Amino acid sequence: METMSTRSAAVLTGTAGAARMFVAALAFTSAYVGFSAYGAATSDTRAEQITLSSRALPVTAPAAEVAPAKNGEIAVSVVADGGCARSYEARSLLVNPEPGQSMRYGWRLARWSPATKTWRTYLRGHDGFAGAERTAEWRAQISGNPGWYRVELTAGGEAVTSERFQVSC
């Protein structure tokens, strides 16, 4: 009887191995067929011709001249972004008293508060540079908040303030 149980175990072991081989072969065949179908689907060689065209538009208005930045002054100009959204660009010339050291500076867009009768911070920005001097530029966007504004620049412990300007929408 012992020989019979050994033979049954050997047959079952051989059958399990054959079943594993069959499953592996089936998986390989499925992968090959899928890959072949993918290759056939993507090997379409039709090409479409696309024609690009452009046209020249005349300049309707001359480019706005930007005044050179001056030390101790802030020039603010309006950059229309469309609709009521407007960007305001502030420029100033910064002179570093120690050109071998870096200089940090900060921008502040302040809005006049009629309730408290003070200038309140609306936006802030910081930057820095190394060298003797730099024309510093900062752009702030105001949308849907009418009122009086001004730009302040602080560098090396000193503050410079722009003229106030009004935003109407």
Rank of each mutant, 00 (worst) to 15 (best):
R86V: 06
A61V: 12
S102C: 03
E73D: 06
E152A: 11
G128Q: 13
V76P: 07
P68T: 03
Y149Q: 01
V151K: 00
P58E: 03
M103C: 14
P99A: 09
L93H: 01
L123H: 09
A63H: 02
T121Y: 00
T121D: 09
P146R: 14
E133P: 02
S77I: 14
D81Q: 12
K117R: 15
Q101I: 08
L153E: 03
A63W: 08
A130M: 14
L109C: 01
V79I: 13
E98R: 10
G144W: 03
A75R: 13
P114S: 10
G83V: 13
C84Y: 06
W112T: 02
R150C: 15
Q101G: 01
Q141L: 09
K70C: 05
A132M: 11
S92Q: 14
A90D: 06
W119R: 04
A56Y: 01
P146M: 10
P68K: 01
R86G: 07
T121P: 00
Y105R: 12
P68E: 07
P99E: 04
R124V: 15
N96K: 02
R104P: 01
K117E: 11
Y105P: 06
R134Q: 14
E137R: 13
T154K: 11
E89N: 15
R124K: 15
V66F: 05
D127L: 10
N96Y: 00
R134P: 00
G125A: 14
L94M: 02
I142R: 09
E65V: 12
P146C: 06
H126Q: 14
R108S: 12
W112A: 07
A80S: 12
L123G: 07
Y105V: 04
N96L: 02
Y122V: 10
S113G: 09
A132G: 00
R124P: 06
W119Y: 04
P97E: 01
R120K: 13
M103T: 06
G147Y: 06
R91S: 13
M103F: 13
Y149I: 11
W148E: 10
S87R: 13
V76A: 07
L93N: 12
T121E: 07
A110Q: 15
R150E: 07
G72Y: 07
W112R: 02
I74Q: 04
A115E: 10
P114I: 10
L153Q: 03
R120T: 11
A56F: 11
S143E: 14
E89W: 08
Q101N: 05
V95Y: 03
P99F: 08
E73K: 13
H126A: 10
F129K: 00
R139H: 05
L93M: 09
